[in-house]
Amino acid sequence: MTTESNNTNSVGCGAGEYGLIAEFAGPGEVLRAAERLRVAGFRFWDVFGPYPLPGMCAAMGLKRSPVGWFGFFGGVIGFIIAVAGIWYLNEVHYPLPIGGKPFFSPFSAFPTAYELAILFAAIATFGGLLVLTGLPRVRHPLFGHRRFALATRDRFFVVIESADPNYHRENTQRFLETIGAVRVEVVMM
């Protein structure tokens, strides 16, 4: 990747450079830093840590997760498939008189439909989560970084990708240091 000059301060992005990784001392520090980064208008950046920080969604300006809609529609589809299927099998295609009950009854179809709705909703939620988080992803530039493995342990990192229009290696590095980063390093692709 060559130097870009289409943006005012987007210079100095070296070839194969993924971005800057900044380490923070604790959850409070990284929360404040995230607030500052959002205000500063960064777009391709993220915070990494061993657990979801409360208040981080607001600090990073994240919108309500749409993963619930996957579950909702999954459930609705599951329910409809089950009811329609049972109706077709027991009423249309192969009617059997059982216990003096109607061939198709919403009551006896309900347990199966309910289970299928939950099954579909759960699978759809899980699938929606994978879609929204971009997982599974086997390779990631950050996995190559020496200290990044600590993110699942007890460390908090902020990563700003070089793709960000505001990215400038030195300026951003300095900015990260002013907002409390303990250590800022460059991550390569």
Partner: peptide, 15 residues
């Protein structure tokens, strides 16, 4: 609690 000291966190994690 607040001061998670450095020597604690670097040891066994794969780096």
């Amino acid at each position: 609690v607040w001061a998670i000291s450095d020597n604690q966190s670097t040891d066994s994690a794969g780096t």
